[in-house]
Simulated scan of single mutants.
Amino acid sequence: MSRTPRTPRPPRTSDTPGRRRSTHRVLPALALLTLTVGTLTACGDNDSAPEHAASAAAPAPAPASATASPSSGAGPAGVSKLRMITNDGHRLAFHVTPGTGDDRTIVLDSGGGEDSSQWKDLVPKLHAATGATVITYDRAGLGKSDVVPGPWKVESAVDDLKAGLDELGVTENVTLVSHSQAGEIANYFAKDYPRMLSGAVLVDANLPPFFTDEQIPRLVAVSKPQVDAAMKDPDKPANRQLISTAEGFAPAHQEFHKVTWPDSVPATVIVSEKTPLDGSPEDAQHWRDAAAAFTEAGPDRTLVTAEGSSHDVPKDRPDLVLKEIESMSATEH
Rank of each mutant, 00 (worst) to 15 (best):
D278I: 13
N239R: 06
P208Q: 06
E296C: 03
H90L: 11
D103C: 02
H95A: 00
L322P: 04
P50R: 02
P124A: 04
A200E: 01
V304M: 11
V174S: 06
A205C: 11
D300S: 14
S244D: 06
F94A: 03
G308R: 08
L176D: 01
E167Y: 13
A74C: 11
V271G: 03
G150P: 02
M1I: 10
E114F: 12
A128E: 14
G75W: 02
T67D: 00
T4M: 14
T39L: 11
R6H: 05
T331S: 15
G38A: 02
K120S: 13
D319F: 07
S280V: 10
P318R: 09
W261H: 04
R317W: 02
D115C: 12
E332R: 15
A140D: 03
H286I: 10
A229G: 08
N173C: 03
P276Y: 13
S14T: 04
A53N: 06
P217N: 06
S116P: 00
R19F: 05
I270V: 15
R195E: 14
N173I: 02
Y193L: 14
G101P: 02
T97W: 01
T245R: 15
L176W: 14
P225I: 10
P208M: 07
K236Q: 11
E326S: 12
K125T: 07
W119I: 00
A53G: 03
T133P: 01
V177Q: 08
L242T: 11
T295A: 08
V107R: 01
P63Q: 07
K274D: 14
W261G: 05
V174F: 04
D88I: 00
T133A: 13
P10S: 12
V148C: 01
G78W: 02
E51S: 07
R240W: 09
F294H: 05
L168H: 04
G78D: 06
V96I: 11
R9I: 05
D319H: 06
M1G: 12
T302E: 14
Y137N: 01
R25F: 10
A250C: 09
P61E: 08
T7D: 09
K315I: 10
T268Y: 07
L30F: 04
H95N: 02
G150L: 10
A49K: 07
R91W: 00
S110W: 00
L32I: 04
P209E: 04
T175I: 12
A66K: 01
S80G: 08
S272K: 02
W152F: 14
P151F: 00
G143A: 07
T105Y: 00
N173E: 04
L202G: 02
T36C: 07
H24E: 05
K125I: 02
P98Q: 09
E324N: 08
D192M: 11
R195L: 03
L35Q: 10
K315W: 09
D103R: 08
D121Q: 13
D278P: 00
P225R: 11
W287D: 06
L40W: 01
G38Q: 00
